[in-house]
Amino acid sequence: MMLQVSELDVFHGDAQALDGVSLDIEAGAIVAIVGANGAGKTSLIRTIAGMYKPGRGSITFKGEDITGWPSYRVCNLGIGQVAEGRQVFPSLSVMENLEMGAVIPRAKPHRARNLERVLAMFPVLKERAGQAAGTLSGGEQQMLAISRCLMGEPELVMFDEPSLGLAPAIVQDVLRTIRDLNRDGLTCVLVEQNVAVSLKLASRAYVLENGRITLSGTGEALLNDDRVRQAYLGM
């Protein structure tokens, strides 16, 4: 197992965001986590990334217990995240944004190679290298956010709502990119409200409701599950 989360409780003040969440992520998999707004998806991602401290439970990455580690150490182990809402740094240039992705020690030696790789993947970023990131279109910003994350030499990337607010055609591009990255060996965690698409893509999926995992299985099994079909697919 690449990442193991067990019995995770997370509180924001008095409110409980996660309640006994356990999940396993195998190396090379695409794991989807689906759920409604406020179900705890972002809390889960941020807790794994070390931005929130769990009240209980443990997180193990490649056999190492990383529970409660600060985010910069977690990052340096190879856990990256593409945060919700295309969080590029708007007044920094595209190139400066990319550089910001490679500040952790594990990424520095591979900076040039990773830069070449992401620019080959998204040539538009090369054209716009000197431009302020805030002036890019929504789709370009998402590409930049993904590229910036890849600059950090991650082994596992957690995508938080990568299709949020994007035009349908661009959503397809983004999801295709994630699939391609996965084929190249990147382990992906995909958090999406776009349930149908993410379940099709995923080898394994979890349904998160009110901070609890209520259902899990292969993506296909969940697609055919009556409860999922009713609650998330409107069928």
């Binding site: 985010s71 910069y72 590029v88 708007p90 007044s91 920094l92 910001m100 952790i104 994350c149 950090g152």
Partner: peptide, 25 residues
């Protein structure tokens, strides 16, 4: 400086900066 860019990243989007492994604190 390197630190100046970290500051700007934190200023523009702190969660994103932390997600990249910048020690915001």
């Amino acid at each position: 400086s390197r630190m100046g860019y970290f500051w700007q990243a934190i200023r523009e989007d702190e969660p994103a900066a932390r997600a990249l492994g910048i020690n915001a604190f």
